[in-house]
Every structure is written in structure tokens, then in C-alpha cells.
Nucleic acid binder design. Structure first.
Lengths: 346, 346
DNA sequence: ATGAAAGCGCTAACAT
DNA sequence: ATGTTAGCGCTTTCAT
């Protein structure tokens, strides 16, 4: 009784195929890998055996022995696979990977840098060919050894800190500047900013763009109008409520993240101010154009980020060696209504 | 010059660690795997070497030799990783997997059954411990050999065809029945149904629930009110326009999928009918409560589907052997407004 | 408690 | 054109 029929709960090996076809192991390997030098008759016999056994080559064992050591596998480290922005990026990466028969490990960090380290460590242990990371935290120098040991990495959406590596990011600075300038042109000077923790580099960039553009408008931001360190939608909603019910309410709001924008909308509605206070949000979101008023946003294209990062990574895997590249994707200001509300007389 | 320093672009092996620590390979293996029978002094020496080399065990090589053959890896085959329903399911699976230090391969099929086969084949080639599948297509008997060869699979959200396997699904039949009964209680009899291709089992179930409940209402559906085979949001929007502009317009609409619901809303708005024609949608979606009118939905909890499927899969991986289980998760009808519009006099 | 050696499924180099 | 063999990084068994 041979392995193939005896242990029905173990996948067949190349050895089983060779035995069934009555050929040597190497011949099976040649057929499986499409290598030349196999007679049509042999090939047919081997293929029949493969078919009969439902044989599938063990890619892990194969990569162990192959010279290029490739596992045909990459890792994708996101903030959260269920965040629409992140999952759109994920899908773009998957589509690029599929063209090359590469499978994608995906994982979420929730802005927790320890989780990021664990995930990357687990990916390295599985010898992924490369990793695309949306980085969290304030120090990525811990990845230096990994780099030197040949792990290819590309950072997407955000730049890593204390590490020189390929990045594909959005123009956050420019986006914030453009949004503030747009509001300024409509007469707004009391413009509030809602931002995430300043440990996140995009949040810093957006705040800086906001600050610079406010200066340009000759409008020093009121201290109570700059709120950072927000994490949840609810916190954003509360922050907006405090500003609007305070002594010096803003006439416009720039929201630094899609969930914050929703929080702001909820508060504006509950105060009946959605048609009186202007709102521009960072990152586009589904149904933004179906709300009342439709929401004006600074949109970054997550699919473009993902595709560009994947292409860069694959070029690196193909041996492309050059100093780190830093690609910045453009933003677009989508005017839908909420951001075109004019300033009320103070 | 030893490997560890010579080839800076190759990850260190257990052999390198053993050499640096001056111990045998087996001792390093014992330390790495936390096996007993290693003196504290040895252990410290090995750990120091591991630290210095930034060594990470090659899980692929390890699983090759280990008796249980586990790769600590599972596959997740979705309709689309970027679909919010699917990505919520994905996240729940990831959270369960993380507790067990298992990594998740995720992939999208776009309702293409050939793509499903390719993906599952690629996952099997990487010897994943198990696969969670949101199945597509009308015949899954092709998976029988995989089953017999020991690949553990659990089907989520939909049942597979011609295959006896574990499933975790939603109560689509009951959900459709409840939605129609709800609309019927508000006086509606001319209720339209928008559904996906009947090759998708959930679409069949929903249609059947709709049909049964209509019968119960004593209201034979008008042929032009039953539209199936819809794929995109735009098609749904067009279908609704045709119904409403036709000779016998419906007074209420049951939409069989989240994107179709959005399409329906767009048409209703463009015709100014969003407060006159009732709408109930299958699957909840973000911002449904912020639209005007807020959208009533039959909600299934994707996270519950994902968690339940993952738990079932892991139990199978732990050796749990019993006939296939079929878990059905309950729905909830969330009344928000759009579904509570009363029937207009015909 | 530690080491030596066999072998997991496969590819690549070397035979024939 | 086909077969034989060594060895990828690791775990396990057996020996010490």
C-alpha cells in the first residue's frame, strides 16, 4: 500500500507522482516547472498522474531549495483591513500581485506599533518576498536589521521614521493648504482643524499645511480651533460640539480623517448648522455626495497608492537597485457643497 | 568568513545561530521551540546569538519537518477584499487568527468561479492549514479531492453547491420574508425586488423569501417588479427607473444587496420620490442613518459570520471531527425611515 | 543535558 | 532525454 492511497489525509508528494507515473523525481519536477527536455510521452504520463492524484507542488518546500528563494508571497501591513481607505489600497495591491501569481498576507495594526513589529516579524518568519507597510509609531529603526538581511519593504500612505526606504505617499501638506486656501477664498478666517495624534506623520503634515495656509491668510488660528490627538468618530463629534458651543465658534472646519468628518457632520446636524458652517474633509468616502449637504473633500486615491507601492516593490524584487525612491501622489479637491458655504459675518 | 557575515542579504539560519553560540543545531531548535531539557546557561547563549543575528525561524522549513505539518497560515477567499461587508468579515477572521499566531492570506474572486479555483489552488500549494471561503458559482464538487486530502474548509455567508461541508450563513430567507411582511403591514402590495444573479445562492434565498411573503400577503408580484441578475449599482439604478416610469410603478422596493440599495436611492432622488416610495435594503452600510430618509435595512453581521467561521475552522484544525455543521446567524430589521413610508393609494 | 544524523518535499547539479 | 544525488532549514529520533 503506497502513501498515495494509504494516507488519504496527507497531500500527495512529487514522489507519489513519480511512483504512479513510473518515472524519476526529477522528471516530475521538470514537468511541474515547465522545464525543457521532457519528451511529450513522458510529459503526458506525468500530467495524468498529477491529475489523478490532484497533486499540487509544495511551494514552501520548493522555495527552500530554489536558488532565488522566492516564496511567491508578500505581506501587507495595514492600519485596519476593514477601513475602506485601507481595503481599497489592499485590493490594488492584490491585483498587482495576482498578475505575478503572488499571494498576499494581510494584517491590521490599529495604530499599535508593537502589533506592527509582531506582524512584520511573523511575515519575515514565513519568508515573504517583500512587505508593503502603512507604518505606525515614531521609530522604525528597528527594521534596519531586516533591511540588511534583504527583506524588501515599501512604505505606503505614510513615511517611516528614522529609516531610509522606498515610500509612496499622498500630498498631505498640499492638500491641507489647498483646503484652507479654498475656505479662505470664501471669506473664512475662523477655520478649525480636527486631527489625529501627531505621532502619525500624515497628521503632522496636514496640521502643518493648515498652519502655513492660515498664516498666508493672515489668520492666526484660535487655540481652541486646533484639536489634535483625536482617535474616534465620537471624539471628533465632541470636539466639534465644544468649539461650536464655545465663545468663539469657527465658521469652517477642516477634518483630517474620514471618520472625523462623519463625527463632525453628526454634530453639525444635531445643532442644525450643517448649512451654515463649512466643512472640508480629508479622504473621500462612499456616499459623500448623497449627504445633505454633499461633502467636499481632499481626496487621495488609495488604489493609486497601493498600485504604485506594489509596482515599486515588485521592481525591487526583480533586482532593481537604486537609492530609496519617494513617490508623492497628487490630491484632488472635490467640491460638492459642504465646503462652499460662505463665511457668515462675524 | 562565515555565512552570517559574508552574505548580508540572506537571512541567518539556525546553523548560523548554532555556530555563533558554539552549540549544536538541535540545541538551538530546542530553545527556539521552547522545549525542555536546556540548561539556563545554554539557553542564554543561544538567545544572545539569536538576538545578535536578528534570527527568525523559517516557518516554512519548520513545518516541512514538523509532525503536525502546520504552517500557521490560513486562506480567506472573499468576493472582494474592498467590499465593506467582506472586509468586516475579514477583520473578524484576522482577530481570531491572531490569537493563535496564525497569518491570513486574503484574496478576491469578484464572483468569478475560475478565479476561486485558482485562488484555492494557490492556497493549497502553500499548504495553508485551512481555508474560509465565500463561495461563488454553481458547482463546488471540484473541491472534493482537496477535502479528501485533508484541506479543512469552512464556507461563510453562502452555502457551496454539491459539496457537504461546514457552513456559516445568514438567514436570508427569513430576512426577505420579514422585510416584505413589514412593508405589507404598511399597506404595500406592489413591492419590487432587486436581486443579483440567481447563480448566487443568497440571491436565490432572498428571492424565495420575497416570493413566499408576497404570497402570504395575497399579492402576486407584478412580473416587471421582479428584477434579478443585477451586477452593478448603475444597473440597479436603471432597473428602478424603468419600474417607476413604467405603467405600473411599485410603491415599495426591496433591494437584495448594499450596492443595489445605493443605486435605488440615486434613482428615487432623481425622480423626487425618496419620500414617497418605501425602500428596504439587504445588508447594512455606513452612513445609512445619515441619508434622507435614513435607510431601513435587513442587517447581517459580517463580523459574526467571520468570527463563527474562524472558530469552526480552528476547531477542525484542532482535530474536532463530526459531520458538517451548518450555523445560521440571525438577521435584524433596522427601522430607520425609508422602509416606514406608507403605501400611497393606487 | 547535549550532540549527531536522518529526512520532510523539493530543485539543481551532475551523471548517463 | 532521463535518472541519481546532494542539500535547502528545520524537527525528530537516537546516541551519548
Amino acid at each position: 500500500m503506497d502513501r498515495a492511497t494509504a494516507k488519504a489525509s496527507q497531500p500527495p508528494t512529487m514522489h507519489d507522482v513519480a511512483a504512479l507515473a513510473g518515472v524519476a523525481l526529477a522528471t516530475v519536477s521538470r514537468v511541474v516547472n515547465g522545464k525543457p527536455g521532457v519528451s511529450p510521452a513522458m510529459q503526458a504520463r506525468v500530467e495524468a498522474a498529477i491529475e489523478r492524484l490532484d497533486y499540487r507542488r509544495n511551494v514552501n518546500a520548493s522555495s527552500l531549495r530554489r536558488l532565488d528563494r522566492k516564496t511567491a508571497t508578500i505581506g501587507l501591513v495595514l492600519e485596519d483591513v476593514a477601513n475602506p481607505f485601507m481595503s481599497a489600497l489592499h485590493r490594488a495591491v492584490e491585483d498587482c500581485a495576482r498578475e505575478r501569481d503572488i499571494l498576499v498576507f494581510a494584517g491590521s495594526c490599529d495604530e499599535d506599533s508593537r502589533r506592527e513589529q509582531e506582524l512584520i516579524s511573523a511575515l519575515r518568519a514565513r519568508r515573504v518576498d517583500g512587505i508593503i507597510v502603512v507604518p505606525t509609531g515614531t521609530d522604525h529603526s528597528y527594521l534596519l536589521p531586516a533591511f540588511r538581511l534583504g527583506t524588501k519593504m515599501v512604505f505606503a500612505d505614510r513615511r517611516p521614521s528614522f529609516l531610509d526606504a522606498d515610500t509612496v505617499t499622498s500630498d498631505d501638506l498640499g492638500g491641507a493648504r489647498a483646503a484652507v486656501a479654498h475656505l479662505g477664498a470664501l471669506g473664512h478666517r475662523r477655520i478649525a482643524y480636527l486631527g489625529a495624534s501627531l505621532t502619525i506623520v500624515t497628521a503632522r503634515d496636514r496640521l502643518q499645511g493648515y498652519t502655513e495656509a492660515m498664516q498666508q491668510l493672515g489668520a492666526a488660528p484660535h487655540p481652541s480651533h486646533v484639536c489634535t490627538g483625536i482617535v474616534t468618530m465620537e471624539e471628533a463629534a465632541r470636539a466639534v460640539a465644544e468649539m461650536l458651543e464655545g465663545p468663539d465658534p469657527p465658521t469652517a472646519i477642516l477634518s483630517g480623517q474620514n471618520y472625523f468628518t462623519i463625527g463632525a457632520i453628526k454634530t453639525l446636524r444635531s445643532l442644525g448648522l450643517e448649512h451654515r458652517v463649512a466643512l472640508v474633509g480629508f479622504d473621500d468616502f462612499a456616499l459623500a455626495e448623497l449627504l445633505d449637504p454633499p461633502v467636499t473633500v481632499v481626496a487621495h486615491d488609495p488604489a493609486e497608492l497601493g498600485r504604485t507601492a506594489a509596482e515599486l516593490l515588485f521592481r525591487r524584487l526583480d533586482g532593481y537597485a537604486s537609492p530609496s525612491q519617494h513617490i508623492v501622489c497628487p490630491f484632488s479637491l472635490i467640491l460638492r457643497g459642504s465646503g462652499e458655504i460662505r463665511a457668515t459675518r462675524p
